[in-house]
Computed example of a mutant assay.
Amino acid sequence: MRKIIAAVLTRAPGRLVTRELILSDPGPDEVLVRIAYAGLCHSDLHEIDGTFATTPPIVLGHEAVGFVERVGSAVHDLTAGDLVVTCLSVFCGRCRACVRGMPSICARRTWLASGRPDRLTTLDGRPVRPTAGIGAFAEMAVVHRNALVAIPPEMPLPTASILGCAVTTGIGAVVRRARVEPGSSVVVIGAGGVGLAAIQGARLAGARTVIAVDLVPEKLAAACELGATHALDGRGPDVVAQVREITGGGADHVIEAVGAASAVAQAMAMLTPGGVATVVGMVPSDPPIRLDGNDLFFLEKTLQGSFMGSNQFVRDIPEYVDLHLRGRLRLDRLVSDVVPFEEINKGFESLAAGRGRRIVVEIRPRKEDR
């Protein structure tokens, strides 16, 4: 066991506070990872601000990059010093979903992600939950082997930190769940880190028309730089009509990357008959999503969800790294700010205000780390 410094959510809604915690040694199927950088995700923010229920005390953070310090006795494919990325869609490899090639919805994920109750505790022995079994807003984390993937050491660390959520979610929603075909028209609602990844995924898939919708001019400019053919201000009352005009009657695909019931309804309205809307944002249950039954019955539109881009991250993430290193993906453009660990709350304030794209926190890199 060892003492570590972590940013802990002690009440919700609330703010993260720095605490000294006890981290256990890794079990047989676990890996001790020294975290270098971690991305700030809206799902973390929603637990901090109380939008989604959580149970404090909890160490948030699920997309991160770090270095293997030690492996458990049953881990034979990782070794100390390996550069690894965390992904919250930990999988068992044996359940019905996993054997069908759908590890992102593994039936045993919740159990695997819960970890051992003594994995992370206060100094007086009270359990502290690491979110998704990771808890990346800390100097070190003990993580199940199936929540990690090794990547090449030449990958820049701040960019690598967002591979396990923003990148897999955005690109995966396009290529794995929506299965966008060459020549298609695609709308992406929300041009944050996930949305910008989806835009690049649509470009890679060969979409002819890629329309970005957002409220922030800087994000729309980044979307155009990364492959969007059109950029629309989502506050405009005629944004649906604009999409229909650009696409000649409606888009083949709409990717909803905001997480709002109103955006889901807007996505359905933007579709051509027979089109598909894919929701990747975390939509609160209140207010409920309202749909027009005619869209489903007479117009054969489809509304579907995609958790974490329906990823197979052990295969997907190395491929995305390769595409980035070869210049076919600009994943570095998804990161707008890198903040020091002691300013993590300021980073979340920027995220809540809609500033920037993906914000990354620098945890504790070594001098030789990049």
Rank of each mutant, 00 (worst) to 15 (best):
L32S: 13
V59R: 09
V59T: 14
L60Y: 14
D25Y: 00
A38Y: 03
T18H: 08
S43G: 12
E47F: 11
L40F: 10
I58Y: 11
L23Y: 09
D25S: 06
D25M: 01
I48A: 08
E20T: 15
L16H: 09
R34W: 04
D25P: 01
T18K: 10
V31H: 06
R15C: 04
P26G: 02
V8G: 08
P56Y: 13
G27Y: 05
E30H: 04
V31E: 07
T55D: 00
A36Y: 02
T51Q: 00
I58F: 12
D44N: 14
L9G: 15
H42K: 07
P26H: 02
I58H: 08
A12L: 04
R34Y: 06
Y37E: 08
A36K: 07
P13Q: 07
L16I: 15
G27M: 07
L40P: 03
R11M: 10
P56K: 14
E47H: 13
I35K: 02
S24H: 01
A38T: 13
D25Q: 05
T55E: 02
L45N: 03
V59S: 11
F52T: 02
R19D: 11
L45I: 07
T18F: 12
I58L: 13
P57V: 13
V59A: 12
V8Y: 08
T55P: 00
A53S: 10
I48G: 06
L16F: 11
L16Y: 08
L40V: 10
T51M: 00
G27Q: 10
V8L: 10
G14E: 05
S43R: 11
A38H: 04
L60V: 15
G14K: 03
S43F: 13
L40I: 12
C41H: 10
L21K: 03
T10P: 00
L32D: 13
G50Q: 01
C41V: 09
S43P: 08
I48F: 05
T18D: 01
G14Y: 01
P56V: 15
L9A: 15
T18C: 00
L21R: 02
D44I: 11
Y37V: 06
I22N: 12
V17D: 08
P56L: 14
H46L: 01
P13Y: 07
I58N: 09
D49Q: 12
V31F: 09
D49A: 10
I48E: 03
G39V: 14
L60E: 15
P26N: 02
P28E: 15
L21E: 00
C41G: 11
L40D: 07
V17N: 05
E20K: 15
L23E: 12
T54Q: 03
L16K: 12
G39I: 14
G14F: 05
L16C: 13
D29I: 06
V33E: 12
I22A: 11
H42Y: 14
V59K: 09
D25T: 03
L45E: 04
A53F: 03
P56I: 14
P56D: 13
V8W: 07
I35D: 01
R19L: 09
T51F: 03
P13R: 07
V59C: 10
L45Q: 04
L32Q: 12
P26Q: 02
G14H: 04
L23R: 09
L16P: 05
I58Q: 13
R34Q: 15
